[in-house]
Design a protein around this nucleic acid. Structure first.
Lengths: 191, 191
DNA sequence: TTTTATAGCGAATAAATATTCACTTATTTT
DNA sequence: AAAATAAGTGAATATTTATTCGCTATAAAA
């Protein structure tokens, strides 16, 4: 029987793809660069993927799932809504700070049309339990009664933009900096 | 003496550039498409610009200036900090909602490295008086005392993300929807 | 009204980049 | 240890896309 595909190579290809797309966008992603950065030959990329588009779609779904996992985590379930929300917020903020390239990679695709509708739906489904959590918080009177999609957009937009500024070096995050940012978020949504 | 450059053509080229970059990113921008969309020949683009990079840089600075004008406007100066802030927030939210492609165009360039350092500085200078306004609000005790860059990132991130969701059709903005969004913003920063 | 300089054109060319393919290498099974 | 099968290679090819260039049209000046 034959040689098997190397999981390390797959991961190296994914990592290189994410980092390069972050810098250049999808159209700017060069297969030759992905190959070089991940330590394989260009031809090898076509052993793993049909082409550039399939590669991107695959990485997109995997990354979205990983992001969902950074927000939705059994460990974050606490006694009160506030405590759980706080754990989730810190979980996601921390993830973005540690791996901003994944946050940026996923952001790239809002209007691109490169990700297939099916893959977008698959990825969105990972976030369903977050909706449930927020709706329950509204019902219990913990947070403002309003369109949950707006709430999520507001919270995510704030985190993403702040993290971007930190990564760019425009903001220096001090000791209590993360808590200050959390307070902004909580004060905006609490009832 | 010769024919003069046609200002209508310049504007058509800018408009086409913004709309196309929004969809495809800088690397995905095709000169042939810019030409087609703006109703000129590809060769004409090179009468106006040295090449793709110069075109992008030019449009970037112009668009950043326009965005600054949507936030910083003498008409927005009111009696109280709250009222002025509200006018500015509505001004910018309204601008993004009306011309999301300009918001998205400028967003594209955070990590791209396509905009020259000089042009970034030129563009950033347009926002200086916004910093002054926020610092004054902190001194007067109207809003939280914290890094103004974080404040701006938080507010901008929220607006951008909400507008993106509206434009994508994921959120439907009802009668009082804009006010709901404003309340999120104000509650987060007020003291 | 003639001259002249530049706008404007778009097919041709040059440059960049995705993909293929004939070949080599490694691993598993027999 | 030989055979078989798929991974892995990277130079060659195909495709896409930026830029150039010889030409025409037009507006201002003489």
């Amino acid at each position: 029987m034959p040689k098997l595909k190397d999981q390390n190579k797959v991961e190296a290809i994914h990592k290189a793809t994410i980092e390069l797309v972050t810098k250049t966008g999808f159209s700017g992603l060069k297969m030759a660069e992905v190959a070089k950065k991940s330590g394989v030959a260009t031809g090898t990329l076509y052993v793993y993927y049909k082409g550039k588009e399939e590669l991107i779609n695959d990485v997109y779904v995997i990354t979205k799932k990983e992001i969902a996992g950074a927000i939705i985590n059994p460990e974050y379930l606490k006694e009160t809504f506030y405590e759980t929300f706080k754990a989730m917020w810190y979980g996601y903020f921390g993830f973005c700070l540690k791996q901003p390239e994944k946050m940026l990679f996923v952001e790239q695709f809002i209007y691109s049309g490169y990700i297939s509708e099916t893959n977008i739906e698959t990825a969105d489904a990972y976030f369903e339990s977050l909706n449930q959590f927020l709706l329950e918080g509204q019902k219990q009177g913990n947070i403002k009664e309003m369109d949950v999609e707006i709430l999520k957009a507001h919270l995510q937009g704030s985190i993403h933009e702040i993290v971007k500024m930190i990564v760019k070096g425009h903001i220096e995050l001090r000791k209590d900096g993360m808590h200050t940012c959390f307070t902004l978020a909580w004060n905006s949504i609490k009832k």
